[in-house]
Design a protein around this nucleic acid. Structure first.
Length: 198
DNA sequence: TTCCCGATTTACT
DNA sequence: GTAAATCGGGAAA
């Protein structure tokens, strides 16, 4: 259970299926000799070829989307609103711009480090519920864009097996600009988990 | 080069 | 509930 997820776990052609399979997996980072880890409890799928919500739509290679065209198994990290770093996992084969946005984790290791990174002295701030929050807690930034998930900085392992009944499917958050594709039910989260974003 | 706006979070009225 | 923060990507000029 401590072995890194193999490349094959990221190379499938169906990004939605991979997104579902990533629920319950354990995400780890090790920066500056500080290990942090948590279970993935909320994800969203994005598909560059067909999905208007995806940065790479309509299958458009740019300096930014280049990362998503890599073969599955690397990190796609980008900046939104000039301040928030969002962590995605690139999927599919080279040349297909698909990715899974990690929206929330349940912390399991290194919570003190996470609190320091989040400046969570007074506890009004959520620790890891929300895509920018978990990136900050795990120490992930745009500097980690294109990082291989077999590396010793960011990687995944098996984690906890959730039952089908615990997995809730819904529309994605913050993609109203995507027209009819905003209605795609490509968000998945663990029912009742307190770390799932609002 | 200008311009618009975003896969969000937080503080404040 | 609403608005501010803050800056780079991408399209248009």
């Amino acid at each position: 259970m401590n072995d890194k997820l193999p490349i094959s776990a990221y190379k499938g052609a169906d990004v939605v299926e991979i997104a579902i399979n990533l629920l319950g997996k354990q995400l780890w980072t090790n920066f500056d000799n500080s290990l942090t880890g948590g279970l993935i409890v909320e994800v969203e799928a994005y598909c560059g070829a067909t999905d208007q919500a995806c940065h790479a739509y309509p299958d458009k290679l740019t300096p930014r989307t280049k990362t998503m065209y890599q073969a599955g198994g690397v990190a796609y990290v980008y900046l939104v609103y000039g301040m928030h770093h969002l962590f995605n996992i690139v999927t599919n084969v080279e040349g297909r711009a698909d990715a899974v946005l990690i929206r929330a984790i349940e912390p399991t290791h290194g919570e003190e480090t996470m609190k320091l990174r989040r400046q969570q002295i007074d506890s009004n701030k959520l620790l890891t519920g929300g895509p920018a929050r978990l990136s900050q807690a795990m120490g992930i930034s745009v500097a980690d864009n294109n990082t291989d998930l077999q590396s010793d900085n960011i990687w995944l392992t098996e984690g906890k097996q959730f039952s089908k009944e615990e997995i809730i499917r819904s529309t994605r958050i913050g993609v109203e600009y995507a027209g009819e594709d905003a209605l795609l039910p490509w968000r998945f989260h663990i029912k009742g988990n307190k770390y799932v974003s609002k």
